[in-house]
Design a protein around this nucleic acid. Structure first.
Lengths: 183, 183
DNA sequence: ACCTGAACACCGTTCAAGT
DNA sequence: ACCTGAACACCGTTCAAGT
């Protein structure tokens, strides 16, 4: 049931963890699959489309742990923590997702709209909700790209715990800003 | 008085604007300089060290326009706007700076410490000041990397004005969060 | 449907040798 | 001090041909 394309994708994600985004080459991927470099182009138009597919795969398997909270602040925090967790599942995951997430991605669009909807339903004006969501995700991207560049993969658990604390603190700051701007 | 090294650096920054970070190759740079590819290695150890030097050059010419404000919120805003302005001077400037800023860079270290000092002098506890500064710069990086990936270079003036407004709104949100967390 | 073989136009980097 | 010439081990991608 798993297509050859899916197997290639799985191998590509494994290779990403092994060598990192900058050293992820189509030729190494072909070697890992026991195949000639050109054979990959039966499954993907280009390296870029391969990387786009890897991102789609990551965001799709974006299983959130635990139940989503009911209040808007909890939901926003939950979404941010979930996005960061997805990025941290793979070496250079944040840079990969920031660079190769296709803007017209349905799942991402839907996700964004639902978040905005949640905040407006809680009484936040739509323009404020958009600013809040965009700010939070710019922060998540910036924070996690820098984190993975500095710490490598996998980061040792102590450093990870420290980064988690720093991330939460910044996230809380932004959420406090949203609350403050509401009055 | 300008060393050959400086000329190479200037050509590299020109080339960056012309082709973008991903297409910036040592061979194109050599051609632009009318020189064989190998000749560059008299001036730089590697492509990476070239890119590091380009970042250092950008951050050094980080002339701030106008006088810095006196209040901590103004100074934080001023620093964030200045960092973004520097990134926007070159195509892919944000990604370049996020990827190739050497962590031990003296200028960057000093800049960071002075900012923290300003906030603590204004009565903000040091741990809060660190969170505030780190959050703001993660935001600046994340926002501007995404902006340049989407808009290209140079961005047309209308889009730029729109991005500026969005950026300011997010920045104000974070600063409101710092203020709120102070009480 | 999937892969091979072979090629094409590129990369970053090294190093002896020239001026 | 700066550059040439030539090489080495790589890249992404195409395409006819095989099974």
């Amino acid at each position: 049931m798993t297509s050859r394309r899916d197997e290639v994708l799985a191998a590509a994600l494994e290779l990403l963890d092994e060598v990192g985004l900058d050293a992820l080459t189509t030729r190494k991927l072909a070697e890992k699959l026991g195949v000639q470099p050109g054979a990959l182009y039966r499954h993907f138009d280009s390296k870029r489309s391969l990387l786009n597919a890897m991102v789609a795969r990551l965001t799709a398997s974006d299983e959130m742990i635990g139940e989503p909270p009911a209040d808007w602040a909890g939901i926003l925090r939950y979404a941010a923590v979930g996005a960061r967790a997805t990025m941290l599942t793979r070496r250079d995951g944040a840079r990969l997702m920031a660079t190769y997430l296709v803007p017209a991605d349905e799942t991402a669009q839907l996700f964004w709209h639902r978040l905005i909807g949640t905040l407006t339903a809680a009484g936040i004006p739509e323009s404020d909700a958009i600013v809040a969501v965009d700010t939070v995700f710019a922060y998540v991207n910036g924070f996690t790209i820098e984190e993975q560049a500095r710490d490598g993969h996998p980061a040792d658990p102590e450093r990870r715990a420290l980064r988690d604390k720093g991330f939460q603190a910044g996230l809380d700051l932004i959420i406090a800003g949203v609350t403050a701007s509401r009055n």
